[in-house]
Nucleic acid binder design. Sequence first.
DNA 1: TGCCAGGCCGGGT
DNA 2: ACCCGGCATGGC
Length: 230
Amino acid sequence: MAKKNSERMQVIKQSGSTPIGEKLLKIYHILYHNFGPQHWWPGESPFEIAVGAILTQNTAWKNVEKAIANLKKANLLTPKALYELPYPYLVELIRPAGFFNIKAKRLKNFLCFLFNEYNGNLTKMFAEETEPLRQKLLKVTGIGPETADSILLYAGNKPTFVVDTYTKRVLLRHHLIFEEADYEQIRNFFMEHLPQDTHLFNEYHALFVSLGKNYCRPKPLCEKCVLKGI
DNA sequence: TGCCAGGCCGGGT
DNA sequence: ACCCGGCATGGC
């Protein structure tokens, strides 16, 4: 089941054989060396992770934690409970996460999708092939590419690469992509040059977030960045 | 105090 | 096809 780290690295080394793949792996190893394993996603169940993925849109994770805690305390962190919960209650519970009106709507959109298509059963949802499911998720209003990929990777353990603002910022500063590159292009960039390894994709995105929080804010601290000189 | 956070949508050109 | 305003709380 869980591969040993040494075995995993062997597989990864073999597959990252293009120059770009080598570079991406080099960056990965530097980040891993500096920040260590990230143990993402910080959530206890696939459903909690999916909810968190929607709540964290353009929002500090700290605020999302409060909202999740509210839902947990009220015993509402299940598909059925949230699906049946009237808007006004939902809005109040997720208030700390910001954008609460729109996020309540987005959560409901996801839940409607989950119940209409999979009888409210996440396991059934994740039984679908990754790409078709990704396309379906993207049609849900309020689920964009990053949210869809976060749900697929972190709640469903499916090999898809999550791209966020930090990721693009880092790649731009290291001249690995063009300014105009959109989400799909950046995602493809990683997925074409790296082995399709769920664990690698999991750690890599989490490490980018860690790097971004430490060094790669809009006001960059490139002088101190662990990737300086790469 | 002001800036920013693990985006995304919808209406206007 | 782009562009951009709006959404909102809480931490640093």
